[in-house]
């Protein structure tokens, strides 16, 4: 009755059953415990599962399959427990020592920030880029030709008084002279010198005005100008793009008005005001000028060899300081150039 192989298989299965409990319940709470566990069951020389595997040939053929499955399942379980415990320990020294005081502040990292002028400029640029404008730049030291004459400022004309100018070299003859640009419009001329319509560009940059420094004016500021030259461009198009801009900067319901003005390089020319709510004022607010604009004067186009009968265009220009002061509620322009960290950190 007793086939020694059957007997051997029964004994092996019984031995395996005995191990099951320990395989499942052994506490694996440290790397050492995991090592011990692995050696106990899987080590080549002393491992108990390894020993059982070696006993497979002793088992009767009809039991071999069942025994083999059982022992392999036990082995897989051991491996899985080792795997999960190892992952747990390798993720950190979780168990070594007490948990630190987590209420201590974090290690201080230095905080940086972008200047409010940069932030305003980015916002402005993004609006116009989304309407298909390119961005161009040009020099701060300019010649009279690009800054004035090519923009239809006649020599000895009061229009030149509209922009108090820092001169670098006195003019030796008409259209000569070198100066600090008073606006970024000369870059428009430089763009048109090098490019044929359609031209759709904005020009950001630093400009200089020889004005007394006060809370509302500084010897320099930053401008963004825009230019669009193409067939069929009208003032209606100009109004639309400016309105789109104003809504982005000052809200969907911004109240805006265009009123006639004068710039030598545009005709008709306009200034754009937005209604600035201020409960302290008798009218509940006031009109604030945000930019100048107009249709590019035919003299400017013809001077650059652009057929003013075929092409029309608009141009606009605004002060970034003015826009950022409105947006951020800054009342004194000088604080923008003082760079006090207590000011800068508010724009992080």
């Amino acid at each position: 009755m007793s086939d020694p192989k059957n007997h051997s298989a029964e004994a092996a299965l019984a031995a395996l059953k005995e191990l099951q409990h320990e395989i499942q319940e052994s506490v694996l709470d440290s790397i050492e415990a995991v090592d011990e566990y692995r050696i106990r069951f899987l080590s080549r020389k002393q491992g108990q599962i390894t020993a059982l595997l070696k006993r497979i040939p002793e088992v009767a053929n009809e039991h071999k399959k069942h025994f083999g499955q059982e022992i392999n399942a036990a082995k897989a379980l051991v491996e899985a427990r080792i795997e999960s415990a190892t992952v747990q320990f390798s993720a950190g020294e979780e168990s070594s020592g007490p948990v630190p005081d987590l209420t201590l502040p974090g290690r201080v990292a230095a905080k940086g920030s972008l200047h409010p002028i940069t932030q305003a400029l980015r916002l402005i640029t993004r609006v116009f880029e989304s309407y298909g404008f390119e961005v161009a730049e040009g020099p701060e030291i300019e010649d009279d030709w690009h800054n004035f004459s090519a923009l239809n400022f006649p020599p000895d004309h009061p229009a030149r008084d509209m922009q108090d100018t820092f001169f670098i070299e006195a003019p030796s003859h008409v259209h000569s002279g070198i100066l600090l640009r008073t606006h970024t419009s000369p870059v428009q001329i430089r763009v048109m010198e090098n490019k044929k319509p359609p031209i759709r560009v904005i020009v950001p940059g630093r400009v200089y005005r020889n004005e007394a420094i006060s809370y509302k004016s500084y010897c320099l500021f930053h401008q963004v100008e825009g230019l669009y030259i193409d067939e069929g461009v009208t003032m209606a198009n100009l109004k639309q793009i400016i309105h789109a801009f104003a809504r982005t900067m000052f809200g969907e319901n911004v109240k805006m008005r265009f009123r006639p003005s004068f710039f030598p390089f545009t005709e008709p020319s306009a200034e754009v005001d937005i209604w600035w709510e201020d409960a302290n004022l008798p009218d509940g607010g006031r009109w604030m000028e945000i930019m100048g604009c107009g249709m590019v004067d035919p003299n400017v186009l013809e001077g650059l060899g652009i057929d003013s009968e075929k092409y029309t265009g608009y141009a606009f220009g605004m002060g970034i300081e003015r826009i950022s002061m409105l947006r951020f509620g800054i009342e004194d322009i000088r604080i923008l150039y003082e760079n006090d960290v207590r000011f800068l950190e508010q724009f992080s």
Partner: peptide
């Protein structure tokens, strides 16, 4: 950690 400044050119 750097803060941007705008200083006078003159």
């Amino acid at each position: 950690g750097f803060r941007e400044t705008y200083t006078n050119s003159m």
